[in-house]
Computed example of a mutant assay.
Amino acid sequence: MLVRDTLSSEESEITDIQEICKPLPISVFLTTPIILFRIMSRAHLRHQTRYLLLANALLSDLIFVVFYMLITCLNAASVLMSDLACGAFLFLMGVLYSAGVFSATAIVVDTSLAILAPLRYATLWPTSRTYGVIVATWVVSVFFPAASVALFLWYHATGPCTQLICSLPLLLVLTVSHSRPLQVCMLLTVTAILVILLLVVAGYVALYCHSSKSGVWRRERSSRAKGTFLIHYLHLFLSVCPILLLVIELLLYCNSTGLNPSADLWISLVMCNVLLVLPKGLAPFLYGLRYRDLRGPLLDFFGLNRPRAITPVM
């Protein structure tokens, strides 16, 4: 009876949440392909590490949103799914999300080398090494979600009932909340991702402190550097929020048995359908409008790049 009530509640409430966050995936589909095409079609951009790492992060976000929208459409159409198919979807989404986290880590390492060792930067991090770093981010990203999905399949294989709706908020409420091994495994996984994100933030703080001592922030062009740091901090803060909320929710699962299913469902819905997609929907605008080489195509696409009138000098 609880499962049936939760299913009906999830179907009605998830529709309202998805109507609110519908512009976020649309913005990703509109802007990210433009940025990726711009980077891949320009030879001077393909030979810069920062653009290659940015393209890798945006590509993982784009594919993540594609799978997110696919699962959303399947749930809206009441399509039933086996545990194996659902586990495959969750595994791919976990790999894509982890790839985005490791891409952010690679970006901060690249920026650190460019600022701390500018004379040796080309030797320490050539373009050929960047491709190896990108491949490594995807390989390492496989290990984080593999354990959680394996435990998910084991739990449903030994459980008395089968859940045929592949919805991440519903899985958190009906599956993770009742399985202590899943709680511990997911808690370790998301804690590791949270630690990595916090290390990325600490890296940017260290770069800010190092560059402020050199007097960069007192020059006339410091506003551009401040804007770049602000973009990185905002994007990382939005990325940390859902992971931090998931850690809190898992800790409540482990230490409490009297949680309200309705409140728990709302927290999971907001976390999975809003906070998880928000940084991916804003990233193309934050980075695309910041870099001069990427700003022009975006403004041209939206019809905002109007030519300025030139006044002749007499």
Rank of each mutant, 00 (worst) to 15 (best):
T123Q: 14
T123F: 10
L124Y: 14
P126Y: 03
S128K: 14
S128Y: 07
R129G: 10
T130M: 14
T130A: 15
T130F: 15
T130K: 11
Y131Q: 14
Y131V: 12
Y131K: 14
V133R: 15
V133N: 11
V133T: 14
I134Q: 06
I134L: 15
V135N: 13
V135H: 14
W138V: 01
W138S: 06
V139C: 14
V139S: 08
V140M: 11
V140F: 08
V140P: 02
S141A: 04
S141L: 01
S141E: 00
V142Q: 05
V142C: 06
V142P: 09
F143T: 00
F143R: 07
F144L: 13
F144N: 02
P145I: 01
P145V: 00
A146Y: 07
A146Q: 02
A146T: 00
A147V: 04
S148Q: 10
S148R: 01
S148C: 11
F152M: 07
L153Q: 05
W154Y: 10
Y155C: 08
H156F: 11
A157L: 03
T158L: 13
T158D: 07
P160K: 09
C161I: 11
Q163D: 02
L164P: 03
L164A: 09
L164T: 07
I165T: 05
I165N: 06
C166Y: 07
C166P: 01
S167Q: 06
S167A: 01
L168T: 00
L168A: 08
L168S: 00
L168G: 01
P169N: 09
L171T: 07
L171F: 09
L171A: 13
L172Q: 01
L174A: 13
T175W: 08
V176K: 04
V176Y: 09
V176W: 03
S177A: 09
S177C: 03
H178I: 01
H178G: 02
H178M: 02
S179W: 05
R180A: 08
P181C: 04
V184I: 15
V184P: 06
V184Q: 13
V184R: 12
V184N: 10
C185V: 05
M186K: 08
M186P: 00
L187G: 12
L188R: 11
V190N: 14
T191D: 07
A192M: 02
A192H: 04
I193Y: 05
I193F: 12
L194G: 12
V195E: 11
